[in-house]
Design a protein around this nucleic acid. Structure first.
Lengths: 187, 187
DNA sequence: ATCGAAGGATTATGGTCATAATCCATACAA
DNA sequence: TTGTATGGATTATGACCATAATCCTTCGAT
């Protein structure tokens, strides 16, 4: 295994573990052990745990929604994306799912540098989303994209935060119907 | 200071600190020191740190949106609430703001017991929200309430997660226009 | 066959944490 | 005045963490 392969393996394992447990509950020894390695070698690959966090999250932030049928636009596209995002499968697999939803607590509190790094990933997602919207101006399309993404994110987070299975499904179903207000009501 | 007063003081300080720093970054020594007390006495008031977390978050979850003018309903009410919730002031004061938004990471990963406890607070909020909606059936009003709350939550979280001030304001403004789809498109 | 680099392992280090056992000072009861 | 309960302080305890220094082993180059 080359050094680069080892590095990628650490990033992959950490990316999943960070999403499952959160930043502070994920320890360097845990990550390395899950890789079949020991703590000692870690700092040959990363400057610090924070360095690993940035690498792992940056990797996980790139969602694949861009791949959908380019013909889909507006509400039809949103329905497809919402039906992919707000599922029980996604809800129950934070480790393989949306990094924003899984790490929202840590991202909010990350330092300025890290937030700037993560923002690049966010912008990428919103750019893709805006490209599917049908507003007249670019500003309107971006606004719709933010609205839509916020609804998805909030819905998934809420569905993961309740203990009752029925309530959780109620939330998922309710939020799948979210749709940005087509009438733009502000200046 | 009576024992109960001390207990309430600890809860109040912890409630703020949890929201500012998150669960794991808030330590028992820190909380007690901020109260002008020492670690030792802590376990005279709470069984464990987790016990304190439940008490503090349960306290913070009760939002005060119920107090608004009872005449406000539907879109007019939503506009008022969104204008209160999606502000730079709220964004920059997690310690005094919405506990769901601040602790979304920890709530998602909390144990079954804790999540059940928090769910009671969530149900309270959604009940209040649903009471302001204009859907025909109770199920529709609840669905609108979840949608609306998810949009608020996601918007605030996103606005806190980006480093760039302009982007943050863009998100707040975009999400203030969120409105549940009035046409119910699912079964 | 020998050497040297370097990836990874062992082992330290200094700190902090949650929790607990014990101690002290005050205040109220007898 | 003496005794006792208790809220809070001191001080342990055992675990774990991020990081670092040092060591070992493998492997490609000579």
């Amino acid at each position: 295994m080359t050094k680069e392969e080892t590095r990628q393996k650490i990033i992959g394992v950490a990316s999943r573990m960070f999403r499952e447990r959160g930043e502070r509950a994920t320890t360097v020894p845990d990550v390395m052990q899950a890789c079949g390695l020991t703590v000692g070698g870690f700092y040959k690959h990363f400057e610090s745990k924070d360095d690993l966090f940035r690498a792992a999250v940056g990797d996980a932030l790139r969602t694949r929604f861009g791949r959908l049928d380019p013909g889909l636009r507006g509400e039809a596209w949103r329905r497809v994306v919402a039906d992919l995002y707000l599922t029980e499968l996604h809800r129950d697999n934070p480790g393989g799912g949306c990094a924003f939803a899984a790490l929202c607590g840590d991202l909010q509190r990350a330092g300025e540098d890290s937030r700037r790094w993560f923002q690049a990933g966010l912008e990428e997602v919103v750019g893709i989303f805006a490209g599917r919207m049908e507003g007249e101006t670019e500003a309107q399309r971006r606004a719709q994209a933010w609205q839509f993404f916020a609804g998805l994110l909030g819905g998934l987070i809420l569905s993961r935060s309740v203990a009752d299975a029925e309530a959780s499904v109620e939330i998922l179903e309710a939020c799948r119907a979210i749709d940005p207000s087509s009438a733009d009501e502000q200046g």
